[in-house]
Design a binder for these strands. Structure first.
Lengths: 200, 200, 200, 200
DNA sequence: TATGAATGAGTGTTCATTCAT
DNA sequence: AATGAATGAACACTCATTCAT
């Protein structure tokens, strides 16, 4: 990649970072191209030489970050661990990754939520695709666990949704409200149960 | 209530329903008063004789529905059940209620999410207040369960967040993606565990 | 005039008085039909059964009041006085009349001014006509005074405009700013001169 | 001042001139931003890149012109003339100046009138301040004339109001109705008297 | 006849997008 | 390639006017 290209990528990156800050704070509609231009120290017109329109700028940044998050989290599936260990590791990595992207989390979940549950004209089908991919891998882990007799015999999708719902709720609370919990607690809760086995 | 008043309420309801459809599909910012007027088959000016401005129209619709949902779900806490039975009942009622309000669910969670995790100047503090109230009652149930030795000794907040996260994820999926599950499965999962007790 | 007609006129009067208060305080554009309805304790629709539109309501009230003022002031010309006495009497009557209509004065001069100096689409040609009539009579007084050798030989229009300008300025100041002056002072100034005849 | 700046000023001037024509003909409220855009041959949005809102556009145009008029007229007070000569000169300069600004006169007097005699929330306090300043200087001239025994012993305010009222009425008539008069006539009338000293 | 709910054209203002420089 | 002035469609909201009751 020559200097030209490197500089081009560098400029694009600066725009994306500036846009991320603003979109994350104020949302898509409430952020204007003029503001992004000011924040990134480019002219409005310049933004349009990198992105065909506001929507694509938004989609691109969201997708890029989502890809980074996805990459980190999904890498767990390639570690060759057994289902139980995979889940444990997944919790750790999810916590670490989402905290690392805490500025973007608000935007991320909101996009994801819109994409999954059907807001018309959603801005990020790409993000949805990544998530579905992740979910599919997660389901495979649960399926394997069930096959191997480690997990009770329930639908892998059911397990996946429950796992994701629980973990995401805890992580969001920890990022936005400062609620503290460890990955051990979380995985124990999910795996263990809330019922004491030895009863009262 | 005379005919006039009844008609007034009827018209107001028609506007609110039309607005609900649009806000739910496209969000607050992306829905224009003109569209609401068209959808409700009133003139723009008429909207303003029922609501002082767009924001209040939005808040009114969201708060009304949220109150109805809250009322139904929270009523479970008044049934005088023990913690375990309360949780079971809660899952049933949540599923039934949220399905009954399926048009509104998208908007509901999105408002709640914005209110809890972000976005200054949220449009619905009332909704947040209702949810926090619910969460407080749920925590009390878990606290009681822990006290009585039914549940393992963990923070009630931790339990509540996990419970809510898991159930909401399952219910949302069932509403929007047609994923089917029973309340028994859900509560068993939460209470029971994913691990077989007799292991492999 | 039967009861019906009397009542009709009475209602019309109430509307006009209410409208006058509002137009006078806030101007034509800033006063809404709804406000006039509220102030007059009629429904908006009722206003339209007395006046075909807002503009005519405005014109009618302005014209009515202008006619009253005009009648009182113009009556001086019918008193059969000589030019000098007419001017003196005119000053007295103008002061008294305009003070009596002080609520309306702001509106009156503003309409007159617009009508005379050509704001397009002026709302009150009738008021202009009345004033021109008055001015014509005043010119005749000056013409007579010049003919009789009482006044220096200048154009009656010149005299009239100067007289009106001076008197109106003083009267407006007295009404709006509380500046006090007597009709004697005013007429002496106009007739006398500012120069001492015996010089320094 | 570079080409850019010059062009900026030129465009701003074109907008101001267009707005002046419209405000002058129809008044503030009755003139819409769209009309100003059309008249100035710019887009609506362009207007807002020169002025933050309609009101400021109005104030700017009014205040600018008022300042120019004020500057020219008030300069007479700095010529070091005696009271009598000052008044003579003032009449000449007022006539010349107001004729030079004849497009603006209608608006000028209307703003001045509103500011002096009425209307809360006037749009141009600056214009009023300029006029009060002028009036104060004029009063000082009359006070000096009285002190020196040139003028009869009357209140300077009284003299000033009468002078202004008379002259403005004449000048307005000459601008709007084509009535012709010379400064000599006007000042003679004011100073001299309408009464022949040698009577009939 | 009197009412006021309903209408929709019109308002001031914003902002994504274009394009001459 | 980069700029930002210019554009005009779109927005939330107002209000003179109409008309079913």
């Amino acid at each position: 990649m020559g200097r030209k290209e490197r500089e081009f990528e560098q400029r694009k990156r600066e725009i994306l970072e500036a846009a991320l800050r603003l979109f994350s704070q104020k949302g898509y509609k409430a952020t204007s191209m003029r503001e992004i231009a000011k924040e990134s120290e480019f002219a409005v017109g310049t933004l349009y030489s990198f992105f065909p329109n506001k929507r694509r700028l938004y989609e691109e940044i969201v997708l890029e970050k989502a890809r980074e998050i996805s990459k980190r989290v999904t890498s767990v599936f390639d570690e060759g661990l057994d289902p139980l260990a995979t889940l444990k590791r997944l919790v750790e990595v999810k916590i670490a990754t989402l905290h690392a992207y805490s500025d973007f989390i608000r935007l991320y979940y909101s996009v994801l939520w819109e994409a999954r549950f059907g807001v018309k004209e959603t801005l990020s089908e790409g993000v949805l695709a990544l998530y579905e991919e992740y979910l599919a891998k997660l389901e495979r882990v649960f399926a394997e666990g069930v096959d191997k007799g480690i997990f009770k015999d329930r639908s892998p999708r059911f397990y996946s949704l429950a796992f994701e719902g629980m973990m995401n709720a805890l992580i969001q609370e920890s990022i936005h409200q400062g609620f503290q919990f460890s990955s051990e607690e979380a995985i124990e809760l999910f795996l263990g149960s809330v019922l004491r086995e030895d009863g009262p």
